[in-house]
Structures are given as C-alpha cells and as structure tokens.
Design a protein around this nucleic acid. Sequence first.
DNA 1: CGCGGCGTTGATCTCTGTCAATACTTGTGG
DNA 2: CCACAAGTATTGACAGAGATCAACGCCGCG
Lengths: 229, 229
Amino acid sequence: MTVNEWTMLMATPLFRAMGPDIVRSVIQSRAAQHFERGAQIFQQGDPANSFFFIFEGWVKLYRQREDGEEVVVTICTAGETFAEGAMFMGGRYPVSAEAVSMARIIRVDGGALRKAIEQQPQLAFDMLAAASAHLRLLVAQIEQLKVQSVPQRIADFLLKQGHADAGPLTIALPYEKALIANRLGMTPESFSRGLAKLRTLGVEVERDKVRIADISKLTRYARKKAVDS
Amino acid sequence: MTVNEWTMLMATPLFRAMGPDIVRSVIQSRAAQHFERGAQIFQQGDPANSFFFIFEGWVKLYRQREDGEEVVVTICTAGETFAEGAMFMGGRYPVSAEAVSMARIIRVDGGALRKAIEQQPQLAFDMLAAASAHLRLLVAQIEQLKVQSVPQRIADFLLKQGHADAGPLTIALPYEKALIANRLGMTPESFSRGLAKLRTLGVEVERDKVRIADISKLTRYARKKAVDS
DNA sequence: CGCGGCGTTGATCTCTGTCAATACTTGTGG
DNA sequence: CCACAAGTATTGACAGAGATCAACGCCGCG
C-alpha cells in the first residue's frame, strides 16, 4: 500500500473514523489487488464476506438475469466503496462486479470489520451512512427511470460527471458508450441518438469528449416535465 | 401499545435483538400513532430523526419533483419498517411518506437508537441488515424497470402479493390501481391494458380481486425475455 | 337523482427498441 | 507498411410499446 493509497483511504469518513490500527486490521495489511479490464471481482451469488474500496479504475455492478441479459446497476470509481451493504445480511452478493478498466482495489474483510464495530460502535454509524448514501443513489435512479426520457437521463448523466453547476464544461466519457447506455437503461443506439438531440441544447460530442456550452441550460432541460426538443 | 402490537414488533429481527428494555426506550413508551388515509407522515426534506414501524395499513414513500409530479418509490405495509436508512446520514428524508389507507404506525427515536447501539453494538448489524434488505429491493426494482415490459412488471407485482409459488391464487389489490401503476412506473391506462393482456395467461380481474389460474405459468411469463403476447 | 372519484376503453402519436448497413478505430500479422 | 479483422459508434428504416387525450361506464355518496 503506497502513501498515496493510504491518503485516499483516509479521505473517506468510514476509514478515517476507524483510525490507523483498525484500518490495518480490516484490510489485513494487504496490498491493493490489480484487475485487468474485464476481470471479475465477484459473482452474484458468491458469499458476501468483504466489501471493496477502489483506488483507481472503474467497476460495474450488474445483475445477470436467467436469460443471460446484463443489467448494470451502478458504476463506481476511485475513492468509492462498493458492496458494503451486502455483507450484513449474512448472505450473498445480489450483484456481480467486474472491472471495466484496469483497476486497483482493496478488499475489506467483513469479519475483521465486525470485530472493529464491536470495539468501536461509532463505526456502525459510518457504515450505515455509507449504506444510506447508496440507498439514495438507487432511489434517484428509480426516479430517473420512471419519469425522465432518454435524452433527459443522458443530460443528467453528463451533468453528474463534472461537478460544476454553471457555465461551460468539457468532460471525457470514462468508458464505453454501450456501458453508459446500459447503466441508463437504454440501448446504445438510443444513447447515440439521445446525445445527438442534445446538440440543440449546446452539447457537442467528439469521440469521448463532450462539451457542454451552458450547464444551467442543460440542467433546466433535464428537470423539465414536458420534453419538446 | 397492545399486546398484539408488541408481538408484531418482537417478530422483527431488529426489535427482538434489542430486548424489551431498549425497545421501550427507543419507542419512548408511546402508543402507536393513528393516520387517516391521505395523512402526511413526513415530508421529503424534513430532518430525519426517526424511523417507523407499521402495525397496520399502507404507506407510500414517494419523491416529489420540482414539476409537481410524484414518483412512488415503494409502498410498505404491516410488519415493515421504513426510513431507517435516512437517519444515519445526519440529514433529511430523501422521500415523503403518506398513509394511503388508515394506518397505525409507531415512531422509533433515532437519538435513543444511537445510544442503544453504543451499549449494544450488535444492534448495528441488525440495522445494517435492514438497510441491506432495502438496498436489494431497490436494486430489484431498477432491474425491473430496465428490462421488463409493462405486463411483465404487473405480473411480478401480482405474484409478490400472495407468497405462494404454484397453483391457483386469488388476491385483493390492497389500494387504488393508479397507485400501483405509479409504483410500477407506468400510467393507470397502461396498467389497465396490461392487466387485460394477462387474461390470456389465466389472470381474471373483477374490481379489486385478481384470480391467477396458474402461478408458475405467470412466473414463467414474468421472467421471459421476449414478450410475445 | 346527480355528482365526483376511479377505472376502462378507444384513437392517435411519439418515443424507443430492433434489425441492418455503414463508418471509424484499433490491433494484428504478414 | 499495409491489409484485414474485430470491436465500437453512428445512422437509417421500421415496428411496437406505451403515453396522451378524450370519452364513457361504474359505483358510492350526499
């Protein structure tokens, strides 16, 4: 574990609350694991006895259906944890996780974490906070799927990539468009056409670079009820 | 609080783990609150310092959008808790809650619960388990919205109402169809037409009574990829 | 009896998925 | 260095699903 990685860990409320000794125990002093693009981190149905922290790269969490179809639930990146929720039903992961780019990830041991919580109950609140944050994201996603059109969901996605709230902005799409499309609950074709529709709102696309002329304008569009054009 | 209510509380892992004394402290020995149909329990944005347990009735959790539209996230009923997640981000409720039928509900105090967790860290695991269960439900809902057609979602909903897994079944829709439609992310018209389509699969509808001729047949339909008719 | 809430049905239109063809990019091997 | 293949993105044509708007039927209630 490099100094930089350690710093990243300590930037999260959960690990900072633990303090150095406990952090070392829950990560069992291991180094970050390396995953190639396409590598499986865990499978839906595996016993859930760890959660994960990402130092670098992108990870998709998805459900695989009986008919073979994949449904991307969320895509996580550096500085985020995933699968903390799963551990505590004594059960199994409800989703699969796969690296969609090269990734460096550390595994946090559930058993050690339980012991840590018993010593320091405060930690439970941080875990709960992390789980709650994910709950909120899912609720927001449900809201989107239910009421927003394809181009509106794309607009929302773009706006969430760069954390500014006014003015112009250029962002780089961090992974394949097909993956974004799935995450947004649409086909790649619809994603492509949706992006094209946003041109009239000042969105220029070239390869994986997207330039937004006016963030507030796009925001207004994403929140609007009736979708003219 | 009646004996019966007490029994219901103690039937949940969370409250059973607390033991009688702690339960009494977190509910502050109050009686269940009564809500009329349509009564607001809390509003999105209110400070989140309690969660709730339902003794009787139905409660919808929904987001209200700027444009005035409501998006139903979930509908809870007797024996279930809701809004436990919200308390632990020190923040505010991300959704609103409203009784959709007469309801008896008890409020569980967040502050008291925090103290209880500090005394008995085991409780944190039960809270986390409850939060995880909700996470799973939301993930399942996202999956549904993304890949299932309107009639398939209706079929899933019906199947979840009665917890049998084979043979025939008659269920009563517990609240207005318009509410179910919203919960399933569709319009009331589409819900009506979707139900009609299920007739060919042995689903008879009369008023709020639904008779399913063959559960396994409907299950197969709900899980299927291609939707013929 | 008339009114209002709820649910169904019908006509129409728009959006999005599907299928197919076509660029464009990247990597590979001769 | 080029030819080719494979992966990825865009575009077009088309069909079907679902939303929307409107009318109507049903039922409970004053």
